[in-house]
Design a protein around this nucleic acid. Structure first.
Length: 227
DNA sequence: GCGACAG
DNA sequence: ATCTTGTCGC
């Protein structure tokens, strides 16, 4: 196979192309089953462990998980995270057999320099609703939301409402929620809040994150023996 | 030129 | 993201 490593110029061009395909619209129904993706990195040879999980809203039960281990093909550059994580994450999602209604992503949706964060990028390629839920801000300005769980403030970029800064737990640092594809800001906010358990990060993303970390620790020694 | 900067 | 134990607080 021929490793594909686009230049930043080409990457930005690809984002512009995908950006034209992003659709922001309210989600018709509250998802009963969602997927979530996250990645962990191992020290050795730039290995990335991409994980996709499927959970049922009822009891936040983990229905299925999928793992993909690969070599990173792109460095981490703010604004271009998709070119590093989207390929393995898409493969992980492709390994799922359980049907899901939306995907929660650890990163931004349209709250991005070119309006195509990882969540939007994945959404367009999947043709499914995706929601970005990041722990930090990439772009945009927002007021500090109220201290109670559920409070939120508008995240805007050049006068555009691209997301919300949402308090998922009382007194805890808020998260940055923005629509990826086929959802709007309000739908994205509601979905994230509906999938929050007793922690700051929504359960599906926690499950994906924990699994990725576990796989990384457990498999890194094996990869060192079998390069 | 000087900061800011998802994971 | 990752390197890393205990510790302070609700």
């Amino acid at each position: 196979m021929t490793p594909t490593t686009p230049s930043l110029k080409d990457a930005a061009r690809e984002q512009a192309r995908l950006g034209r395909m992003v659709r922001i619209e309210p989600l018709a129904r509250e998802p009963e089953v969602v997927a979530a993706v996250d990645a962990a990195y191992a020290d050795h040879q730039g290995t990335i462990f991409a994980v996709a999980v499927v959970l049922a809203h009822d009891g936040f039960e983990l229905l299925e998980s999928s793992l993909v281990a690969a070599r990173t093909q792109f460095p981490y550059i703010p604004g271009f995270l998709s070119f590093r994580e989207a390929p393995p994450l898409l493969r992980a999602l492709g390994g799922l057999e359980t049907p899901f209604e939306a995907v929660l992503v650890d990163g931004q949706g349209i709250a991005h320099p070119r309006s195509v964060g990882l969540a939007s990028h994945l959404g367009v390629l999947l043709g499914l609703p995706t929601i970005g839920c990041a722990k930090k801000r990439l772009v945009g300005n927002a007021a500090v939301p109220g201290p109670e769980k559920g409070s939120f403030s508008t995240l805007e970029v050049k006068g555009e409402r691209v997301g919300v800064v949402l308090r998922t737990r009382t007194g805890v640092k808020p998260v940055f929620v923005s629509p990826g594809h086929l959802v709007d800001v309000d739908s994205a906010r509601r979905v994230v809040l509906n999938w929050v358990g007793r922690f700051r990060i929504p359960e599906p993303l926690r499950a994906a994150h924990n699994l990725a970390a576990r796989y990384s620790k457990a498999l890194t020694p094996l990869l060192a023996r079998n390069p």
